[in-house]
Design a protein around this nucleic acid. Structure first.
Length: 950
RNA sequence: GGGCGGUUAGCUCAGUCGGCUAGAGCGCUGCGUUGACAUCGCAGAGGUCACUGGUUCAAGUCCAGUAUCGCCCACCA
């Protein structure tokens, strides 16, 4: 692959700290211009591709934190697999988002004093397309800023020709299969958007309402009202005009004698009689045990009505006002009517009681208004068989859901699924591909004054793959297309294969279906994931992805869900401007575990930014040293500590590419100093762990471990230790510095792609194997088994760290001046596993800035005016002269001793336990024995130290 | 009504297969004008792992229950 060079000189005048704004855009262009986002290694017989189909953002939206999480996680997964050398495809796209987009544009029109009806259907659609023309590039630009390494050349849109064909074919196939039908059912109606909704588009919120106790009087044979009657409770008295019965439980003894009798509607202007029927759906515990049946405005009542052949009456109109059926209440808003009806009931003596009542009220997810259950002619998908298969593939683990617990949520939903209402009375979306014959369906086709058409009951839809021109029944050629559009999730549900060319048989489809991971928020598990699995299985005969990864919601610092009304929405791009995109990504990726919500705070973002800065500066140091070494070659023993051409602060020094470091890191044990062996082994340890974690989708933990390694081990210890060797010209640490920095950058790249690439571009010429690839995005990801762990070195260096920390602690305790020369006497315990066998690393870490000398024989140590420390692997003495206070020293050591004794007791108790010795694994027992022995030695040493003080 | 999740340091959160003294960041205390970095370094303080019981040689981790906060689903009007 030919690539253009990434030139950091484009990144002008970096001063001070890492400046993400100077780096991110050029790096992104560098990747994209060099084709890194296209699937790589597209060769037959290559590893199975790793594919992610991006959840398409709403075309009119702006990128919010949910998208930011999605893009971060998917990009990290994609980059990891790309670096593993697998062919990777990340396919981006956008969703036309029917109802959401239409409501945005209608809002714009409203501000101009218009409605969509003023424009008419065609002009309105044009208007939306214009708007989409503005927003579409905006949202893709935002995704680019995130660093998303997706294949923009394959960008899909749900209204593109291929997804359109996919919708058409799916609709026809479902119809011909009998899984799609049109009919009058009770549906959720949005009286503001004036459209039907599916069940999942209704959000239930607890609200305080009123529970009215209303008496429906019995009448005698002549129709005169009697004193007694049936008392029901209702929350919606305005629907009384639509009542068709009173239902009670068949086992309810209170009402059995009255079954079959009639009561009269207790409302002014109504003398309609309705029967008392029995239905086991009635809860005899609730209220009075009697339920008014209003099939036109309640789901349960509709079902009861069907069982008793009771025709629904529609008393609430599409716009939420009352219909002519409501008599004197006609034309009133449903809430207004509710109040007035209650008032009348009270005045007329039918209202027995009013109580407050907390109940769940359904609101339209989009408009927020209270949903009205209405009987309406709509298109439905019969989901029974689709759901059974969709449940099976998850139950059989053909599709794995992460986190695992979401599997139950999914299955429970699938097992209780109801028909899916897919028609929407909107203009923006996929027009329903059904036609009606003007002749045959003349009665069903209703044309309003403004020319708009609705299709009534009893129609005969013509559903074919190509637009029909003649009626198959009468041969007539006057056909009318269904005016409605499809639920936006119908086309999104096909996304997994419509983006790959389906219904055509394409190479992409063959190669990339099913995709590897579907990553999205758990909040759209039912909306989207469930539908994709149902429709994917139906169309393709195979589940659309192997794994579903569900991430949690991003909340504000107080843990609240972000919402416009709370005015607590955090703009990810604003945060990226402030802290850098890598910092934002790292924060989002490491901020939570799969499926758990996270809070985003400035403190966390700051922490990530500081980590990026640390990395930048650490790399700057390593690169600077490489540059100096190159300038002053050949003799590494004569390396000056300072660089002759010291790079200006903040700028990454550019080592001369023509003089890379000579040689690979020596492999043979014993050749390398301890700290080299240690850091290389630790690098491998982190590599192993990260591989394991990523395989389990634990991106957060993996990212944190890499951070801990780079900061807590590489920069804090290895780089510090390396400085002595750089200064005194011993065996150069540069090969190891280079190798570990390289490894760390590779490991971190999926989380922080920009800064790692920027640094790596400068490091690349120094790498021993720099010929294979010239961008980190395509470099090989470190693998388990790349190197052997060196557990001995890890143990021994750990002892070095203990010694160094102990010396620092003593110095801090006695407030030894930073520049003050101090000797340190160390007696390593060479009889202990992991003991320090060589004092050089201690010197290297410690002597960086604090003059000291190390004497490894305690016999030579002074006995007066000393501070000391006892470690499992060594004993330490520092002659501090007048700084030492006998009482303080005694207190310090006694505290240590107390601690040791406490732990020793615990260890001994454990070992004394017969069960432990018998049942615990031998290694664990041995470990405990060694610990006890260590502690005993430390106890003895401390006691003798304390004794010497007296 | 059913289901799920959280409860670990002052705060926000990790903690993988049950196993050494339970970790990080922020905050806090002390020291530090270190030739990568003050967006920093070093050292330190700070924990009954919500509670009760159980399993186990061993429990933050597994089981049962309780409390509490949150979420999802559901045809109690």
């Amino acid at each position: 692959m030919t690539t253009t060079e990434f030139d950091l000189s484009n990144v002008s005048n970096l001063t001070g700290a890492y400046d993400a704004s100077q780096v991110e855009d050029p790096i992104y262009a560098f990747w994209e211009d060099n084709g890194w986002f296209r699937p790589t290694g597209a060769v037959e017989g290559q590893p199975e591709p790793f594919t992610v189909i991006m959840p398409p953002p709403n075309v009119t939206g702006v990128l919010h934190l949910g998208h930011a999480v999605t893009l971060t996680i998917e990009d990290a997964l994609i980059r990891w697999h790309r670096m593993l050398g697998e062919p990777t495809l990340w396919l981006p796209g956008l969703d036309h988002a029917g109802i959401a987009t239409q409501s945005v544009v209608e809002g714009q029109l409203a501000r101009e004093g218009m409605t969509r009806h003023d424009l008419g259907r065609e002009a309105f659609e044009e208007r939306v397309w214009d708007w989409v023309g503005v927003t579409r590039p905006r949202i893709t630009a935002q995704a680019r800023r995130m660093g998303a390494s997706c294949d923009w050349e394959r960008t899909a849109f749900t209204l593109d020709p291929t997804p359109r064909d996919a919708v058409r074919k799916t609709f026809v196939d479902l119809f011909n299969d009998g899984k799609l039908y049109r009919g009058a059912r009770i549906i959720n109606w949005d009286p503001q958007m004036l459209t039907a909704l599916s069940d999942v588009e209704v959000e239930y919120r607890e609200e305080e309402g009123k529970l009215w106790h209303v008496r429906y009087p019995f009448v005698d044979e002549r129709g005169n009202e009697l004193e007694d009657g049936v008392v029901i409770v209702t929350t919606r008295p305005e629907t009384i005009p639509a009542d068709v019965a009173i239902a009670v439980h068949p086992d309810d003894e209170r009402w059995q004698p009255h079954l079959g009798r009639h009561v009269r509607l207790p409302l002014r202007g109504f003398d309609r009689l309705i029967p008392l029927v029995a239905d086991s759906a009635v809860d005899l515990e609730f209220g009075t045990g009697a339920l008014k049946i209003t099939p036109g405005h309640d789901q349960l009542d509709f079902e009861i009505g069907e069982r008793h052949n009771l025709e629904p009456i529609r008393v609430v109109d599409w716009d939420g006002t009352l219909t002519a059926e409501a008599g004197l209440y006609a034309g009133m808003d449903r809430n207004e009517a509710r109040t007035l009806v209650a008032q009348h009931l009270e005045q007329d003596g039918y209202l027995l009681k009013t109580e407050t009542h907390i109940h769940n009220v359904g609101h339209s997810q989009r408009s927020g208004v209270v949903v009205e259950p209405l009987v309406s002619n709509q298109w439905f998908v019969d989901t029974d068989e689709l759901a059974a298969e969709a449940a099976r593939v998850v139950r059989d683990d053909e599709v794995r859901i992460v986190p695992e617990r979401s599997k139950n949520v999914y299955l429970q939903w699938m097992d209780n699924i109801r028909p899916w209402c897919i028609s929407r009375q909107l203009w923006w979306g996929h027009r329903i591909p059904a036609w009606y014959c003007s002749a045959c369906d003349a009665d069903a086709i209703i044309t309003a004054d403004d020319g708009e058409i609705t299709i009534d009951e009893g129609s005969h839809p013509i559903v074919e793959l190509t637009d029909p021109t003649t009626c198959p029944t009468c041969g007539g050629s006057e056909l009318v297309q269904d005016p409605d559009v499809l639920d936006t999730w119908f086309s999104s549900g096909l996304w997994t294969h419509s983006t790959l060319g389906w219904p055509d048989t394409t190479d992409d489809l063959a190669r990339f279906y099913p995709s590897s991971v579907m990553e999205t928020g758990y909040d759209i598990l039912f909306f989207w994931v469930a539908r994709m699995i149902m429709l994917g299985c139906f169309n393709m005969g195979e589940a659309p992805f192997r794994t579903v990864y569900l991430h949690g919601l991003v909340r504000d610092a107080e843990g609240r869900k972000m919402s416009k009304s709370l005015d607590n929405v955090i703009d990810p791009l604003e945060k990226a401007d402030q802290y850098g995109m890598d910092a934002l990504r790292f924060t989002l990726a490491t901020g939570s575990t799969p499926g758990n919500d996270m809070r985003l705070t400035d403190e966390r973002l700051e922490g990530s930014r500081n980590f990026a800065n640390k990395l930048w500066n650490g790399a700057k140091f390593v690169l600077g040293e490489i540059a100096s070494a190159s300038d002053r070659s050949p003799s590494p023993r004569e390396l000056p500590y300072s660089s002759p051409r010291s790079p200006s602060q903040g700028e990454l020094p550019s080592p001369t590419p023509s003089s890379p470091l000579q040689g690979e890191v020596p492999k043979a044990e014993g050749v390398l100093p301890l700290e080299d062996r240690w850091i290389l082994s630790r690098l491998q340890a982190v590599t192993d762990s990260v591989d394991e974690l990523l395989t389990q989708f634990q991106l957060g933990e993996a990212g944190r471990q890499i951070q801990d390694f780079l900061r807590g081990e590489f920069f804090d210890w290895y780089v510090e230790a390396s400085k002595v060797r750089l200064r005194n010209g011993d065996l150069s640490p540069l090969p190891v510095l280079t190798k570990v920095l390289d490894g760390g950058l590779r490991l971190l790249h999926p989380w922080m792609p920009f800064i790692t690439e920027a640094i790596w571009q400068q490091l690349r010429p120094q790498l021993a194997d720099n010929n294979d690839v010239d961008a980190l995005i395509g470099a090989r990801y470190p693998q388990p088994g790349d190197a052997d762990r060196d557990l001995e070195a890890e143990a021994e260096f750990s002892a070095v760290q203990d010694v160094v920390t102990a010396v620092r602690q003593v110095r801090a305790d006695y407030k030894v001046q930073a520049g003050q020369f101090v000797e340190v006497y160390v007696r390593p315990r060479d009889d202990v596993v992991g003991a320090v066998t060589d004092s050089a690393p201690i010197i290297e870490v410690l002597s960086r800035s604090r003059p000291l000398s190390i004497v490894t024989d305690l016999a030579d140590a002074p006995t007066d005016q000393i501070a000391s420390a006892v470690l499992p692997t060594a004993e330490i003495i520092l002659p501090l002269g007048g700084l030492v206070d006998l009482g303080q020293e005694q207190a310090r050591l006694s505290k240590d001793l107390d601690n040791i004794i406490k732990r020793l007791k615990g260890a001994e108790a454990k070992l004394a336990n017969e069960g432990f010795r018998k049942k615990a694994p031998a290694a664990v027992v041995q470990q405990a024995e060694e610990l006890a022995a260590d502690l005993q030695r430390q106890q003895a040493d401390l006691e003798s130290r304390i004794g010497a003080l007296g």
